[in-house]
Design a protein around this nucleic acid. Structure first.
Length: 487
RNA sequence: GGGGGCGUAGCUCAGCCGGUAGAGCAGCGGCCUUUUAAGCCGUAGGUCGCAGGUUCGAUCCCUGCCGCCCUCACCA
């Protein structure tokens, strides 16, 4: 357990104990937030104050030492003078950089005007047995930053800021839906039948019921049951799980916002999305709607562009008919896409993704998706081949997906049966009959929305990798180095 | 899964044409009461990711493996 712990720090720990000091006391004098102390600092000159936090590197002048103490709100210099703290002085070296401390003293300044707490009493709050990363560069190694996020967070202040911003984004998303009289709800993560998206699920098992369960790939079908139940406006922000590849835009567990609103259609939901972005620009970006992402600028202030799915398809694939398999097949081959064993509608959409998605700098609403790739969306009245559905793209990245919800139980059952007939790893092996039953009781016309919160955070924080907005991204388990092979 | 890159001290990084390892920070000892990437003097710290191979000799070249990063595929 002590493997890798610096010996000199263990020695100091022992020395502290020998001197009768607990290196891990249950409580110390709590500090005042440093940011508060720093505001109108001049007026506080001479006052007694306590700060508690992590000690930075010590600058030692013999009979005088300086160091900064950082808490969640900021950092403040502390000065230690031999002549004003004779009791502490002989043990001063037992408290060192990266230790957690509580320090009481008088507020003042140095000759250069730096706000400083002149220490009178120092209490070790918790001994750090490991040194801090390099003071100037912080922790740079990506692997260690993800594996040891706790170090990344205290060593790299901008990481803390990024996650504080994420917290603010989620809070404001809630505030927006709350203001529209939506109810925040929680629906099952453990589901006997997975649905609401197309993705491979994680499989688990409940012992007492001896039942196979899936971690949800989407909350959709449960939220729409609530619409049937008359809740009318609901949203959920929660983790979903997809057993698929990992990339800069994909983590196996990620946070999804889904909202459903009775009596709304997909046009209304488009307005909701624009309203949400207007709210976020105002409350998170302080009115400045321009964000930098992957070296480009994006203006997130609504209104957003709109384009029909099939029009975009036709622009990038002249002469190709989305609904005509041979022509899509030829185009797919020309693009070098994988074509073996791919369902026709899937292939057509692959052509769309290969040729159109990268051009969608946006923000742009792509709307009216073909029904074959939209099993839960309502058909257009004047063209049953397409649905009332849109996706929001920014920087070639899919941020959201919305549609007028299919509420015809007979159509829904047929589409489910179609899916089951062509079952693959990404579709459930059975029809969700209970969901169909719910629709049979009558679901009002409704508009639904899904937004990937992590991707939204990437955009608003300028992060190029989803791992920079997920506190603990999934990494391969680090195995102990295997012993040399026996012969 | 394919392609590319990386892995050297606790941290940040050098390391030439193959000749057996370096700096800064952190640590330890010393000097210093106004520094804030403090400074100066000294000192200690290494399974060069792991395992093989080539070679008189491998951190360096080759092969395999492990991990991470980028990218493509996958992900409606």
């Amino acid at each position: 357990m002590t493997d890798g712990i610096a010996n000199d720090r263990l020695e100091k720990l022992q020395a502290l104990r020998a001197a009768g000091q607990d290196p891990f006391p249950a409580r110390v004098t709590r500090g005042q937030p440093i940011a508060e102390l720093l505001s109108d600092f001049a007026a506080k000159h001479g006052q007694t104050a306590t700060v508690a936090g992590r000690l930075g590197q010590i600058r030692d002048f013999g009979k005088l030492r300086f160091a900064h103490v950082a808490d969640r709100t900021g950092s403040l210099q502390v000065g230690f003078q031999r002549d004003s703290m004779p009791a502490f002085w002989p043990n001063r070296r037992l408290v060192e950089g990266n230790d957690l401390v509580s320090i009481t003293g008088k507020l003042g300044t140095t000759q250069k005007g730096e706000p400083t707490l002149w220490a009178e009493e120092v209490t070790l709050a918790s001994k750090s047995l490991r040194p801090a990363p390099e003071k100037w560069h912080g922790l740079q190694d990506q692997e260690q930053r993800y594996r040891m996020r706790y170090v990344d967070l205290f060593a790299n202040p901008e990481v803390r800021q990024s996650f504080a911003l994420r917290s603010r984004i989620v809070r404001e998303v809630r505030a927006y839906f709350d203001s529209l009289d939506y109810l925040e709800v929680e629906t099952p993560i453990l589901q006997p039948i997975f649905g609401g998206a197309s993705a491979r699920p994680f499989v688990t098992h409940h012992n007492a019921l001896d039942m196979q369960l899936y971690l949800r790939i989407a909350p959709e079908l449960y939220l729409k049951r609530l619409i049937v139940g008359g809740m009318e406006r609901v949203y959920e922000i929660g983790r979903v799980f997809r057993n698929e590849g990992i990339s800069t835009r994909h983590n196996p567990e990620f946070t999804m916002l889904e909202s459903y609103e009775a009596w709304a259609d997909y046009r209304d939901i488009m307005a909701r999305v624009e309203g949400l972005f207007a709210h976020l620009v105002e409350r998170v970006l302080a009115g400045n709607g321009t964000v930098a992402f992957r070296e480009k600028q994006y203006d997130l202030k609504p209104p957003f562009q709109k384009a029909r799915y099939l029009d975009l398809f036709a622009q990038q694939n002249p002469g190709v008919d989305w609904f005509d398999h041979p022509s899509c097949l030829a185009r797919a081959r020309q693009l070098g896409l994988k074509t073996d064993g791919i369902e026709p509608h899937k292939l057509a959409n692959d052509v769309f993704e290969a040729t159109v998605e990268d051009t969608l700098q946006g923000p742009i609403f792509v709307h009216d998706y073909p029904v074959a790739i939209s099993p839960l969306a309502k058909r257009m009245a004047d063209d049953p081949r397409v649905t009332e559905r849109f996706e929001l793209f920014v920087a070639g990245m899919e941020l959201g997906n919305a549609f007028s919800e299919l509420n015809d139980p007979i159509d829904q059952q047929q589409r489910f049966e179609e899916q089951v007939a062509h079952k693959d790893d990404e579709t459930p092996g059975e029809v969700d009959l209970d969901y169909v039953t719910a629709l049979e009781f009558g679901m009002p016309p409704a508009g639904g929305l899904g937004i990937g919160i992590d991707r939204l955070c990437m955009l608003l924080t300028g992060s190029t990798s989803i791992r920079d907005v997920v506190l603990f991204p999934l990494l391969r388990r680090q195995e102990a180095t295997p012993p040399p092979a026996e012969s």
